[in-house]
Write a protein that binds this DNA or RNA. Structure first.
Lengths: 347, 347
DNA sequence: GTGAAAGCGCTAACAT
DNA sequence: ATGTTAGCGCTTTCAC
């Protein structure tokens, strides 16, 4: 059914190797007219190279793996779309993997992809340690980690791409402080990831810089809630925070991401507290929905598309055998002020 | 580096074909002890079959293609996650393709996947015609179309999976009629898809059945808005509908999906109209966010996970050469009543 | 500038 | 019950 290089070669009156050379852009090795004849033959026969054969021979695939916590989260959905577009641009496919942040699944997935000949992976689960992926990395896996910065024990070949969380939390905290808030909550999940830890630190230092009055209120889900999804986490946290004594109740909440922030807003409403008026809420990411909900969400935007483009560039560069730069790439986050934040109630 | 069946064979003291037989579950062809020895050798050597070689030989991949309009839409994000889980269960990978509903891109994608050896695709863009995919389908592509029902010109091998849109719109319309609404808007996009057309028809017939008083108000984006995303569409439509003369203004709106419904709510608020009180809004899908926004969204739920599971089953069955059933599989939608619908204002 | 030939790792006849 | 062998379609030395 499908044409092979032999048929193309025959149709063009050349040898298979010449066809192969045309296929691989080794133009210098043949006359322009020969090349043209081959091209025409390909066209006429509707020739499409067989990837499996190519890969078997060269050991390389034209696909990259994408490991996200879950594309059901709109943020990762958007990222996946941009990554796919960027990969397509470079003639690569994207293999989708939802790990739900389970290191075990992640490890299996990577081993699997590796065995399938994939040599480039974009990992979005920001694990604190990459130990579970040490083997393939040592064997030359081109790994780009999103939403994570380099850690002391990281293999040197891994490139990390993330927003600058210190700047991000600072933007958020200063916005809140500027509105007069002093008791500010920080809601995060039990699952330890690099960027959450950084945001946590950034938050504390921003409040600290604001002087003694500012009072951080950390809400951290116990291990009990490790499996809750982000929105549910915001909900649970808020229900608990709002039940506290007024003097210990935050007037503003910084959530680890927009889905959590949405959960915070929902729980506030359920408790009769109007988000954006009685309780200021701020998220991270700027998912599409942040501008559609009520109140619309003030949030720290991540330059998603650019991160995706850069991620693909880095993976492909590493795949081309170029010296890995390693380290971290910090992008500038941007504060998007909407309706969910406002002055302290009663002032 | 990676072990081959030859090395495993040598280590186990058998021939490569026996190893291959073990690999392919042809247990009957060897003694249990032989099998065991091979298994042990594999384990010891950390053997992983080479997919490329396998595929080159058999012509089959263990991957299925997923073509969605865009995973940036939370509904398709969730679907993608469930599909990936279901595929994994059956030892298959998922290749992600965002077509943005562009038939041209869709065609390119499918041709590309076909050339890569993929023989099974789950298509979620519900085009009215499958003409642009006629070639691969004729060549044996196992195609399962989601969110679409069989059309007269469809190739007979295509299986369609969808909710029953007649039931769905009926549920929605009856809910609205039961609340006393008579002027009910229907907001849909210019892009023609099978299920939108069906919902359109279902909506009209439901209102028709309610008698003369019920008055459908169709808002259909002109071609100008063909590229708007769903939420933006709801926004534009609502701004226009609410600007109409009170006697021609709908008191309730049925949106083509939840994202559009969210846009409707946002535009209503911007116009000083309180969704859920002054304007009832109902969507389709029941995305995760439908329970998080304010007002929480009344919607017609699609049994997403089940659709994904069934889709994978059908693709793999077709891939195994079983007679394709073709036709349509209609699943039962379910009305989820939340805050965005209520009695007609002023009654 | 072009061609011949070997072989990537696996499967499936076909032997034995 | 197990082994031998011939490719699947391509790339890549190495000849010419």
């Amino acid at each position: 059914m499908a044409a092979t290089i032999y048929q193309v070669a025959q149709a063009a009156g050349v040898s298979p190797s010449t066809v192969s050379n045309v296929l691989n852009g080794r133009d210098g090795r043949m006359l322009p007219q020969t090349r043209k004849r081959v091209l025409q033959a390909m066209d006429r026969l509707g020739y499409r190279p067989n990837r499996a054969a190519r890969q078997l021979r060269t050991g390389r695939t034209r696909a990259i793996g994408l490991v996200v916590p879950s594309v059901a989260n709109p943020f990762w959905g958007s990222f996946a779309r941009h990554l796919e577009a960027a990969a397509l641009e470079r003639d690569h496919h994207v293999l989708l993997c939802n790990s739900e942040r389970d290191p075990r699944r992640e490890q299996d997935y990577v081993a699997e992809l590796w065995a399938d000949g994939l040599r480039g992976i974009v990992l979005c689960t920001s694990p604190t340690s990459l130990a579970h992926l040490a083997d393939p990395i040592a064997d030359g896996l081109a790994l780009v980690a999103i939403d994570r910065t380099a850690q002391p024990d990281d293999p040197s070949s891994v490139t990390n791409i993330s927003i600058d969380n210190v700047v991000g939390t600072r933007l958020a905290a200063d916005h809140l402080l500027g509105l007069g808030h002093r008791r500010i909550g920080f809601v995060s999940g039990a699952v330890r990831t690099v960027n959450r830890a950084e945001r946590h630190r950034g938050f504390l230092s921003a409040l600290h810089a604001a002087g003694d009055e500012a009072e951080p209120i950390i809400w951290d889900s116990g291990d009990d809630y490790a499996d809750l999804d982000a929105a549910e986490l915001g909900r649970t946290a808020t229900a608990e925070l709002l039940a506290r004594d007024p003097s210990e109740r935050p007037t503003a909440v910084l959530a680890m991401n927009d889905m959590t922030a949405l959960g915070v807003c929902a729980a506030a409403r359920e408790a009769g507290v109007v988000p954006g008026r009685d309780l200021s809420v701020i998220g991270f990411d700027d998912i599409v929905l942040a501008g559609l909900t009520w109140p619309t969400l003030t949030t720290v935007r991540q330059p998603l598309e650019r991160m995706a483009t850069v991620a693909v560039e880095h993976v492909l560069r590493a795949l081309d055998g170029e010296e890995p730069n390693g380290g971290s790439l910090l992008m500038r986050p941007e504060l998007v002020v909407r309706e969910s934040t406002g002055p302290v109630p009663g002032t």
